[in-house]
Amino acid sequence: MIKLQIPISEEDIRSLKVGDEVLLSGTIVTARDEAHKLMVDEKPEFIREYLKESVIYHCGPVVKQNESGEWSFVSAGPTTSAREEPYQSTVVCEYNVRGVIGKGGMGAKTLEGLKKCGAVYFHAIGGAGTLIANSVKKVKKVFKLEEFGSPEAFWVIEVEDFPVVVTMDSHEGSLHKEVLEKSKKIMEELL
């Protein structure tokens, strides 16, 4: 198990390989469909400082606000990353992002972006909403909550020992590509 503290250097991220199990700690940002579209279309500045050498989390959490107005995460597993495929490599390179957490993996364009700009894809366990929410220690800020709604907002959160597996690295390695090719081959025999 590798422990990584955010911000992460390019050297550290490039040392990761497919199959590495990692515990992430530090400040990360949730972003999904609306947020990615915005980051590509308008390149907003408000999120830049939080993304630099940090990690984007594809997640639409269940959140709770207490009486004094503070937010917390109740359930917060990853959402399907494939929907961000058209945007991801642009966002990673534009904002100097070192990692993307999600589920299901991403495609060729993202893999190329990870190599070019020095980043990896971390796979979290889909559906493990309560478990992952327990590793979210603090909600630091939220952007676009009113406009996008809570699942789509940018949540800036502090995580401790967030468990992930590297399934796409910065050297063109992709577990998703491997499993897909293998299962297609097996399928031919089964049909």
């Binding site: 269940v62 109740v74 359930s75 917060a76 597993g77 959402t79 493990a128 909403g129 309560t130 929410a133």
Partner: peptide, 12 residues
Amino acid sequence: MAKEQSTPICQD
């Protein structure tokens, strides 16, 4: 954990 805490198994 979800059962014990009475929180959603999955956020979706």
